[in-house]
Each structure stands twice: as structure tokens, then as C-alpha cells.
């Protein structure tokens, strides 16, 4: 059994009466792909927000490779090796795609020479290669806000990967693309994760995707984890089918 990378214990947080996290316990193992499923408002994004320091839980703790990261700022957690892609893409919309990636690479390398242009960074080829993994190299010079939502979501993931994280958290990575394209894009994504050897957690609504791409799946329901395990076991559990999948 592989080592635990991220360890969440008894996370609790509520927003004006809504218990968005109500005693969440979850381990993310080194090297795995963990899917999170659950109905709208179950607290999936909230969990990612707590793990990355965007929200501080009322109770509980998060440990990453043994270090307590519960009350740290997002930038500190990012520097420790957790990157994040968002439910709605967070990019620098007045800069072109490659500049978005290069800024991530410069942040990773802590390259702050004030007289050396970002565009002359030596990581440029590496970033183009990263775009190629997603089949997006042709958009390198495009302005971010000229691209469709699905493409921007992939670029958001590429930006996160440009940081060379150990753990990548993704919030519905394929939600912006047509269902026909989903598998093709997920194949690209999984390949990109494998190339870098990144452990990943992804929130997903499509059960087919979970079955095909997740090593384990955690089922969220009203701020709690209802069950966790391999997809073939969890997704056939009658309680899960009733509460989450709705059959």
C-alpha cells in the first residue's frame, strides 16, 4: 500500500446554517487518481477550498506529507506542492496563453530578475510541450478571453501543472466540453498527469468518467463522506445509487 500524501481529519465548516463540511476524513494516497462525486451543494468545492487554504475550517486539520497545512495561505500551500484547477477557470485574461503558463513557470523557479522579460524565460519550450500534451499548442499566442470555456478549463489545468505539483486538485475538469469530447480530453489529461507523475483529485459528475479514470472514488453528501473505495464497489452500492446517482 502506498504512502498517504494528503490527510484530512474531521474537517468542519458551515455557512449560515449550511454544513458544507461536517466531519470530513479522507486520505489521498501517493500516485492515485481519486474522484469526488456528489450532488450540487454537497461541499465538494468547499473541501478543495479548505485543502488549499482558501477557507479555514472551524475544526479539523489537513496534513500534506506530514506537515500541518490547515491554517496556511493558498500561496504557501501552492509552494509546498499542491496545485489547483478551478470549477470556473481562473486565468489572466488580458495575457496570452503562453504568458499565463510562463508566469506559473517563473513562480515555480522563483525567477524574479526585474530586467529579464517573461517571454525570454528558458521554460518556454517546456511550456509549449505541456500545451502539446493537451493538444493546445496552436493557441499559445491566443488571448485567453477569446477561447471557449472548455479550452480555458484545460489551460487552467495546464497552468496548474506548469507548477510541477505533487498533488493536483481539479474541480470538474471536463464540465465545459461536449459529452462527445469528454473521453478524448480526459485521455489527454490522464496522460499529462502520468508524464509528470502527479497524484490527482478530481470532482466529477459523470459516473462513466469516474468508472473509467478513477482509482478510488469518494461520495459526498451534505458535507459528509458517505462512502469511499474503488469505483466498481462504490458505484454499485445500493445506498449510493439511491442518494447520489438517483436510480
Amino acid at each position: 500500500m502506498s504512502a498517504t500524501l494528503l490527510e484530512a481529519r474531521n474537517l468542519c465548516i458551515s455557512f449560515g446554517g449550511v454544513q458544507a463540511a461536517d466531519g470530513i476524513d479522507l486520505d489521498v494516497r501517493d500516485g492515485e487518481r481519486l474522484a469526488i462525486i456528489g450532488p450540487n451543494g454537497a461541499g465538494k468545492t468547499t473541501f478543495l477550498n479548505i485543502c488549499t487554504g482558501y477557507l479555514t475550517p472551524a475544526a479539523g486539520s489537513v496534513r500534506f506529507r506530514g506537515h500541518d497545512i490547515t491554517a496556511l495561505a493558498p500561496r504557501t500551500i501552492t509552494r509546498m506542492g499542491i496545485a489547483r484547477a478551478f470549477q470556473s477557470p481562473q486565468l489572466f485574461h488580458e495575457q496570452c496563453v503562453i504568458d499565463n503558463l510562463l508566469l506559473a513557470a517563473a513562480a515555480r523557479e522563483r525567477a524574479w530578475n526585474p530586467f529579464r522579460p517573461l517571454r525570454e524565460r528558458p521554460e518556454r519550450d517546456e511550456m509549449v510541450a505541456l500545451l502539446e500534451l493537451f493538444g493546445l499548442a496552436e493557441y499559445a499566442a491566443s488571448m485567453v478571453d477569446e477561447l471557449p470555456e472548455g479550452t480555458r478549463k484545460l489551460i487552467d489545468i495546464a497552468v496548474a501543472l506548469a507548477l510541477r505539483p505533487q498533488l493536483l486538485l481539479m474541480d470538474e475538469p471536463t464540465s465545459g466540453v461536449s459529452s462527445l469530447e469528454k473521453f478524448r480530453i480526459m485521455d489527454l489529461l490522464v496522460n499529462a498527469l502520468a508524464v509528470q507523475g502527479v497524484t490527482s483529485v478530481f470532482v466529477e459528475h459523470d459516473m462513466e468518467m469516474v468508472e473509467r479514470y478513477a482509482d478510488r472514488v469518494a461520495v459526498w453528501s451534505s458535507g459528509r463522506i458517505q462512502s469511499v473505495g474503488p469505483p466498481d464497489q462504490v458505484l454499485t452500492d445500493p445506498a449510493v445509487m439511491r442518494d447520489v446517482i438517483g436510480v
Binding site: 501552492t78 489572466f92 485574461h93 510562463l102 530578475n113
Partner: peptide, 20 residues
């Protein structure tokens, strides 16, 4: 430079900047 580009990123998306 990266610093200057980060400066304009404050205008466009401070959240992503922190997450870099």
C-alpha cells in the same frame, strides 16, 4: 519581467496569482 507581468495579474486575477 515576471514581476511586471505578475503586477498586471493583480488587475486581472488575484486568486490565480495566489494559487501560483
Amino acid at each position: 519581467s515576471p514581476l511586471g507581468e505578475a503586477l498586471s495579474a493583480i488587475r486581472t486575477n488575484e486568486t490565480r496569482l495566489e494559487y501560483l
